[in-house]
């Protein structure tokens, strides 16, 4: 079997065309493919549709995230569960571009976002969910009652590319995530035509991960790049401040 490991992040994102749809994994700072995001910002593809839980953080120092792609004029639309920060006093870099109409957004409940990706990876075109019933998000949408309860129709969300971050990988692309790093990574890998992964540890020879321990099978993975040590590689921001 041929290795899927590439030498650089630039190589991994070189062919991404204008207009591509890309899913970016991560929850909080964990499992976010910062190095691939950075390479995409340098590559410069435009008119992108970005799928992610958030559009990037409000924290300092700024990380390469969707907010940065937006600032560089690379993004047409985002599909996410946050277009504004949860704390009203925080200002996301993304928000002003959305409010001015420069970028479109589709705001989706987080579980619906995960399930739309899962459905795309599972050959299911649509499903019904109780989330968002009775809210502004359900206005004008198809709802249906099952067993006396109302559900909202949601469609699968296939994407052209998924950008992931994993802890371990073997050269075939079998992936293992650590702790809450797993988050959206497995479902995004399954929803994408081409899945690109940045890997935190040295990429193992094929078979280097026990089959019982694989979280995402290598058949869903197409390209791997090992993250170099800092400062060449981008790791993640430090612990978040806790308000008591």
């Amino acid at each position: 079997m041929k290795t899927k490991e590439l030498a650089s992040f630039a190589d991994a994102v070189r062919d991404i065309p204008d207009g591509a749809s890309i899913a970016f994994a991560g929850f909080g700072p964990v499992g976010v493919p910062y190095n691939l995001l950075n390479a995409l910002a340098e590559q410069g593809a435009k008119n992108l549709t970005c799928v992610a839980n958030t559009t990037g953080g409000a924290g300092q120092p700024r990380m390469p995230d969707i907010g940065r792609l937006v600032e560089q004029g690379q993004v047409r639309k985002v599909i996410c569960s946050f277009t504004a920060a949860t704390r009203a006093s925080d200002q996301l870099p993304f928000t002003k571009y959305y409010e001015s109409g420069e970028v479109e957004a589709e705001l989706v409940p987080q579980g619906t976002l995960a399930e739309r990706l899962r459905a795309a990876g599972a050959g299911i075109p649509a499903f019904y969910t109780p989330a968002a019933v009775g809210t502004e998000l359900a206005e004008g949408r198809e709802t249906r009652s099952f067993g006396g309860r109302d559900y909202l129709l949601e469609h699968a969300l296939p994407v052209d590319y998924a950008f992931l971050r994993a802890w371990r990988a073997d050269a075939f692309g079998n992936l293992l995530f650590r702790r809450s790093q797993r988050n959206f990574n497995p479902v995004m890998a399954m929803a994408a035509r081409i899945t690109i992964v940045e890997v935190e540890e040295d990429i193992l020879p094929i078979g280097g991960i026990d089959p019982d321990e694989v979280h995402t099978a290598g058949i869903f993975v197409h390209r791997l790049v090992r993250i170099p040590p800092a400062p060449a590689g981008i790791w993640q921001p430090g612990p978040r401040e806790v308000r008591r």
Partner: peptide, 16 residues
């Protein structure tokens, strides 16, 4: 008056 918002998992959780 906001155009955007932050739903996160709240709608799934609140409904279920």
């Amino acid at each position: 008056g906001a155009k955007g918002g932050g739903i996160g998992g709240a709608m799934d959780l609140a409904a279920c």
